[in-house]
């Protein structure tokens, strides 16, 4: 199960976007935009300077936000699409 070291794994990608502004999309349609502070193996996410967007409207701002990720024990509220924003 070892990854060939020359291929970039999803983990490498995620590590490379730490500290950058990202968009986190939930299944519910809510989007969070913020600076990715860190994440863990369950895809729990910590964002800074977070904005909560619903239907294209800014609903809330949080200084720090913990977003519960996918984990092995429960079905997840979050589907993670994590992409760089301009």
């Amino acid at each position: 199960m070892e990854q060939p070291s020359q291929t970039r794994s999803p983990t490498d990608f995620l590590n490379s976007v730490i500290g950058r502004r990202v968009l986190v999309k939930l299944n519910s349609g809510v989007d969070y935009k913020g600076v990715l502070a860190c994440l863990d193996g369950y895809m729990n996410i910590a964002l800074e300077q977070t904005e909560e967007w619903v239907n294209g409207q800014l609903k809330n701002r949080y200084g720090d936000a913990f977003i519960r990720g996918n984990n092995c024990y429960t079905s997840a509220p979050t589907r993670l699409a994590c992409h760089r924003t301009a």
Binding site: Y32, Y62, G63, P77
Partner: peptide, 14 residues
């Protein structure tokens, strides 16, 4: 119960 949690925001530590 944790399975209902979507987001947790601490008090702002400005």
């Amino acid at each position: 119960r944790g399975d209902g949690v979507i987001l947790v925001s601490p008090p702002s530590r400005a």
